[in-house]
Design a protein around this nucleic acid. Structure first.
Lengths: 137, 137
DNA sequence: CCTTGACTTCGAGTGCACTCACAGTCGTAG
DNA sequence: CTACGACTGTGAGTGCACTCGAAGTCAAGG
């Protein structure tokens, strides 16, 4: 269980395209070893790095900020304070997103109940349907 | 408590810019009444519609799909089945996003603990630090 | 009367993150 | 020996959702 993977294998594993994996490398987010023939070889450690990058991206961190973070890691222990700040900001972003998504989920569930629960009851669709809760800030 | 709002008031209330509110209208997602002088007037119902649109957008529904949904609502009761399908798909998207965000949150918390908990312990940063969990599919 | 500020329309511009095209290379299967 | 499929680098293109700019209108204050 430590067989190096090809770019197509690793991209499928992580749910991205091979194009995207190459793009991240071009953007300086990580470097990947090559085989004798020039093909990228992803070992366990490299896969984990890429997985981390994908997680940060899918949770809303931009490429430029991620790039900054990667540079800080390369620069060593003196940069941990700024790295901490980046991760604290990222945590807040994620928490905010989760809160928004849960609100949107409530709204969506309500719509589903309206459409799925009532078998064509009519007297609907006056607006974009009626909303469950008022619009409080 | 049913005073109509201006575009600047409603956009601040909903956390978007006035530009974006106008853009949604231009995209056909909703229509807004005008005052005698031509300014947009948002009443309670209109604010709720816009709030719904914003929630769907922030949870990943694209403008074109949202536009389709709005058209279906306009077309009346015969379209509830397709509207249900759209909302079911939306629910799945949201659930997937929440799952991904929670994974990203775990990763972020781990980094914070590493930087915040360990006061410059050294012997770190061999990769982009060590990951808490293995990369399982 | 004149300025100020918030609004109007509408075409055009921006930023981001991919995503693609193309020409070339490599290793194995037939 | 040659065809195939998966890979390579890199410049250019795409799609989306805003975001801006410019010119104009309007109501109220000094």
């Amino acid at each position: 269980m430590d067989v190096p993977l090809s770019i197509s294998e690793v991209s499928e594993l992580l749910g991205i395209t091979a194009h995207t994996a190459r793009y991240y490398e071009r953007a300086g987010l990580l470097t990947i070893d090559r085989s004798q023939s020039g093909h990228r070889i992803y070992d366990r450690k490299t896969v984990e790095r890429l997985d981390f990058l994908v997680r940060m991206r899918t949770s809303g961190m931009g490429i430029s900020e991620l790039s900054r973070y990667v540079d800080l890691v390369r620069d060593g222990d003196s940069t941990t304070e700024e790295r901490l700040q980046i991760m604290l900001a990222q945590r807040e972003r994620i928490r905010t997103q989760i809160r928004e998504l849960e609100r949107a989920l409530d709204t969506t569930e309500y719509k589903i109940a309206t459409y799925g629960g009532a078998p064509t009851t009519s007297t609907t669709s006056s607006a974009i349907d009626h909303e469950p809760e008022g619009t409080s800030s």
